[in-house]
């Protein structure tokens, strides 16, 4: 019972987290609809809003998780999960960036080669 009380968040915190959840999800949905965020990125990024909400509104769930993983405080699980998903997002972003850099490099090279061919055609 004492543990559950410790895991329970105050009304103000719940309100703040709920506000963040709705605003951030609304922002993400809008961006996805505008094709500015991939659907897979949407799923990954929405975890940043979903995880704190789950922990705030379902304290028993966070307790179960902390017991399962042998962690004393449920908030450690919360931060651990957030760090994990932030790492996934960073990893994915960097991987995409590397791929895009390679594509930009290839396109830049193609442009230079095509420009040379064009100028040769113009001359002939």
């Amino acid at each position: 019972m004492n543990e559950l009380q410790e895991a329970t968040t105050s009304f103000e915190t719940k309100l703040f987290i709920a506000l963040f959840f709705f605003l951030y999800l609304w922002f993400l949905i809008r961006r996805t609809q505008q094709s500015r965020v991939d659907i897979s990125d949407f799923i990954l990024m929405s975890t940043v809003a979903i995880i704190p909400t789950l922990f705030a509104f379902l304290p028993t769930l966070s307790l179960e998780f902390s017991h399962l993983l042998g962690v004393k405080f449920p908030f450690v699980i919360l931060f651990g999960a957030l760090i994990f998903f932030s790492f996934l997002i960073t990893h994915r972003t960097l991987e995409k960036l590397s791929q895009q850099t390679q594509k930009v490099r290839q396109l830049t090279q193609k442009m230079a080669l095509l420009e040379e061919e064009l100028s040769k055609l113009k001359k002939s």
Binding site: R105, T108, Q109, A112, E116
Partner: peptide, 25 residues
């Protein structure tokens, strides 16, 4: 000389590779 003008700076690796692609083609 034949000039291959890269629209952005790729570094020496990208520049040499462009020349090699041209030479190969």
């Amino acid at each position: 000389a034949i000039v291959l003008k890269l629209p952005a700076n790729l570094g020496i690796g990208g520049a040499v590779q462009t020349g090699l692609i041209f030479a190969q083609r």
